[in-house]
Write a protein that binds this DNA or RNA. Structure first.
Length: 621
RNA sequence: GUGCCCGUAGCUCAAUUGGAUAGAGCGCUGCCCUCCGAAGGCAGAGGUUGCAGGUUCGACUCCUGCCGGGCACGCCA
């Protein structure tokens, strides 16, 4: 009888490490068994790759080392007997698990509950992790870029939570500074002049005003220079001078508004608050539709740091962490050519200043030992500077004297079919809401075509879930630091490696139980013994058993696409199993119950995995 | 000019952080629904991993130099 175990990798690691110690007692220090699932079935189920590196240490031939390990390792209760034939190539040891051992592993996935469900091993050291995500700006719609900055870090946060870590989401809202003051000033004028009623104000209108306000402060210095250099005449010069002085006037007024905001002037703050409320209402609506866990409580805008900036710079100057350079205040970061600029020569602060304050708050007040930034890769230099400066300043210092891990989970750009950043034909950013609409509309067409027997309302719900799943899966499924080409046709083809394919596999794991109930064949499977005989059953079991390790790898690497790849492989293994192994019409009662239980566990891993990615699921489609 | 990232099948992407004969999907060629959901499964064709060296028992992965593309580079955020 096979022993009871959850994770073959863990059991094999223990057995092989013991064998290595026994075979080579002279080897000091840690030994690594280097157990991994085999890539191809012909090389067995798992392999031990320790012999090659060990040969160097003990000074023998790798294959002899492998023989020595094989002679010492005891796998009789869980694997086919090892022999010289198990040693292949330069010294790989191939391991074929026994069906009953595999079965007990799958049954083991059902033993845990809560965080320990489905073979997941909760983190032994619970970390407090701040995940920076979303990053929207006041008076601006969410656009394609925010798809990534919301979906990717939310998935990372969910994986960490799934492993039992304490996660604090923080949306670093762009709600402060001169641009915000500009639009605040402009809105005040419009309101005072009675041209806009507060209750009729929309985010679209605000965004237009934002752009106008910025344009009105834009001084055409290049034009001015050109006019002077080429002597284009007094008329052109006069026109430009008028433009520049007008823009300067607007600029000065905006600075005045910023000062009023900073001094908490009631009327000004009230208008700012109006912009804030309208923006956040729209933002939360979009994020909710995206099935991302981002709420108002997660919002920590730049404005909340504004009072801390001046003292922070003073602190750094006092402690000689920062220095004055050409009138500005900079922190020189070891290993970086360009210093981190934290105060302009006019006394204003920069976003690096705010980010340093944010790191300080996140580590010192929120207690994070790890801070993960889900932000565009183009800001990587900025984060190198900010992280380096914060560490130099001691702001990331933990009670035990080490520094918190500061990580930039950088993502690439969403491109259009032309290979350029995804924009509308007129060159504007695509509104995230419109993008979701388009995905859902296309999903609806597919649902109408393929799904029958659903009410209008049900079809709507399915289309919504399928569309959102498709769009999120595309964003999560390729390596995050790379750019990817956004293509509705491919994404909603619903074939191959897509969100809908995964939903389809999940739905099939569920529908078998509806069918079983109809046929009165749904009894006795819940505690049934699992029997692994067919190749498709074995492949499915081996895939199921990898789940916990995959989550750990995502938590460590902050790369959600690994979970996507895994779920696709699981869905594929299930589809093959479902095709090749009759469940309800299995040859005997025991096999039917075993296979029903396999369907159930597969369905729950798929649902758990999709949920951990933040992808919505359906029961039927 | 300096720095960072990328280059894998016709196209879009993987490759268990250095492991075996580089895998999927789309597209292409064939099969498989009187049979649990064909948004599925099975099989086939398709590769000098940009190029040239180096380290290693072993390199898509690490190092050096080129070629090609992208991005970022102190007073915007």
């Amino acid at each position: 009888m096979a022993i009871f175990f959850d994770d073959p990798v863990q059991v094999l690691t223990q057995r092989f490490e013991a064998a290595i110690r026994a075979a080579f007692p002279a080897v000091s220090g840690a030994v690594e068994a280097l157990i991994s699932p085999s890539r191809q079935p012909q090389f067995g189920d798992f392999q031990c790759n320790a012999a090659m590196s060990l040969a160097k240490v003990v000074g023998g031939k790798p294959r002899d080392v492998a023989s020595a390990i094989v002679a010492k390792v005891d796998l009789s209760d869980i694997a086919e007997p090892l022999s010289e034939k198990s040693i292949a190539g330069p010294g790989f040891i191939n391991i074929v698990l026994r069906g009953d051992a595999l079965a007990s592993g799958v049954v083991g996935m059902d033993a845990g509950t809560g965080l320990a469900a489905l073979g997941v091993v909760p983190a032994s050291k619970v970390e407090t992790v701040v995940v920076d995500l979303c990053g929207v700006n006041l008076a601006k719609q969410m656009h394609v870029g925010h798809l990534r900055s919301t979906v990717i870090p939310d998935a990372i946060a969910r994986v960490l939570e799934r492993l039992g870590h304490k996660v604090i989401r923080q949306s670093h809202l762009g709600d402060w500074g001169l641009p915000i003051a500009m639009v605040t000033g402009k809105l005040m004028e419009e309101l005072n002049a009675g041209r806009i009623k507060p209750e009729a104000l929309t985010l679209d209108r605000l965004e237009v005003m934002y752009r106008e306000a910025q344009a009105e402060c834009e001084r055409d210095m290049k034009g001015m220079e050109a006019v002077r250099r080429y002597g284009l005449g007094p008329k052109a010069e006069a026109e430009l001078e008028a433009q520049v002085s007008w823009a300067t006037e607007n600029f000065t007024r905006a600075k005045g508004v910023l000062l009023k905001l900073q001094s908490h002037d009631k009327a000004t703050v009230a208008v700012w608050q109006l912009i804030y409320d309208i923006t956040m209402r729209a933002c939360i609506e979009t994020v909710t539709r995206l099935h991302a866990n981002v709420t108002l409580e997660h919002t920590a805008g730049e404005s909340t740091y504004s009072e801390e900036l001046a003292p922070l710079v003073r602190d750094l100057l006092d402690r000689k962490v920062a220095e004055v350079d050409q009138g500005a205040v900079v922190v020189r970061v070891p290993g970086l050519e360009v210093p981190c600029l934290i105060r302009k020569s006019d006394g204003g602060f920069l976003y690096a200043t705010t980010d340093m304050a944010a790191i300080r708050r996140r580590v010192q007040k929120l207690g994070a030992s790890r801070v993960i930034y889900g932000v565009d890769i183009r800001q990587s230099l900025h984060f190198q500077q900010a992280f380096g400066a914060a560490i130099k300043a001691g702001y990331a210092r933990l009670p035990d004297g080490s520094d918190a891990k500061l990580e930039h989970a950088a993502f690439g750009t969403v491109l259009g079919n032309d290979g350029r950043p995804f924009k509308t034909r007129s060159g504007d950013n695509v509104k995230l809401w419109d993008l979701l609409d388009e995905a859902v509309n296309r999903a609806r067409a597919a649902v109408n075509e393929r799904s029958s027997g659903f009410s209008e309302e049900e079809r709507g719900k399915i289309a919504e879930a399928v569309g959102i799943a498709a769009i999120k899966y595309v964003d999560l499924s390729s390596e995050r630091s790379k750019d990817y080409v956004f293509d509705f046709d491919r994404m909603l083809a619903f074939e191959g490696n897509t969100g809908p394919y995964l939903l389809y596999a999940l739905v099939r794991t569920r529908s078998i139980f509806r069918k079983a109930a109809e046929e009165k064949l749904d009894g006795g499977w819940r505690d049934a013994a699992i029997v692994i005989k067919e190749p498709a059953e074995k492949a499915l079991a081996l895939t199921l058993l990898r789940y916990g390790k995959v989550l750990e790898s995502v938590a460590q690497s902050t790369e959600p696409h690994r979970l996507c790849v895994y779920l696709f492989e699981l869905a594929t293994a299930f589809s093959a199993f479902f095709d090749q192994c009759k469940v309800l019409f299995a040859p005997d009662e025991a096999t039917r119950r075993s296979r029903l239980r396999l369907c159930d566990i597969t369905g729950r891993v798929l649902a758990d995995g999709l949920g951990t990615l933040g992808i919505p699921t359906v029961e039927r489609m």
